Simulated assay, not measured.
Amino acid sequence: MAAVQTGHLRRLDSGAIVVTVPGIERLIVCRAAWEDVLVHAADQPGDAFVFRPRRAARHAKNLFSSWAARHRPTGGLPALSVRRLRSSWIVELLSARISAKR
Rank of each mutant, 00 (worst) to 15 (best):
D47K: 05
D47S: 03
D47Y: 05
A48K: 06
A48T: 05
A48Y: 03
A48L: 11
F49H: 07
V50T: 09
V50E: 06
F51W: 01
F51P: 07
F51S: 01
F51L: 05
F51H: 03
R52G: 03
R54P: 03
R55W: 08
A56P: 07
A57K: 12
A57W: 10
R58I: 13
R58Q: 02
A60S: 07
A60P: 11
A60W: 06
K61V: 13
K61A: 15
K61Y: 07
K61G: 15
N62E: 06
N62S: 02
N62H: 09
N62T: 00
L63F: 07
L63P: 07
F64D: 05
F64S: 04
F64E: 06
S65T: 15
W67H: 03
A68P: 09
A68I: 11
A69S: 15
R70L: 06
R70Q: 15
H71K: 03
H71A: 10
H71I: 00
H71N: 11
R72A: 07
R72G: 02
R72M: 11
P73K: 03
P73L: 02
P73A: 12
P73V: 04
T74G: 13
G76I: 00
G76D: 01
G76Q: 00
P78A: 13
P78Y: 12
P78W: 11
P78L: 07
P78F: 12
P78I: 01
A79Y: 08
L80F: 09
L80D: 02
V82Q: 11
V82D: 02
R83I: 11
R83G: 06
L85M: 00
L85G: 04
L85A: 01
R86I: 01
R86W: 00
S87P: 01
S87W: 04
S87G: 13
W89Q: 03
W89H: 09
W89E: 09
I90K: 13
V91Q: 00
V91F: 07
E92P: 02
E92R: 06
L93D: 09
L94A: 13
L94T: 09
S95H: 05
S95A: 14
S95V: 07
A96K: 05
R97W: 03
R97A: 10
R97K: 06
R97C: 06
R97N: 12
S99C: 10
S99R: 10
A100K: 08
K101N: 09
K101W: 14
R102I: 15
R102T: 14
R102N: 15
R102C: 09
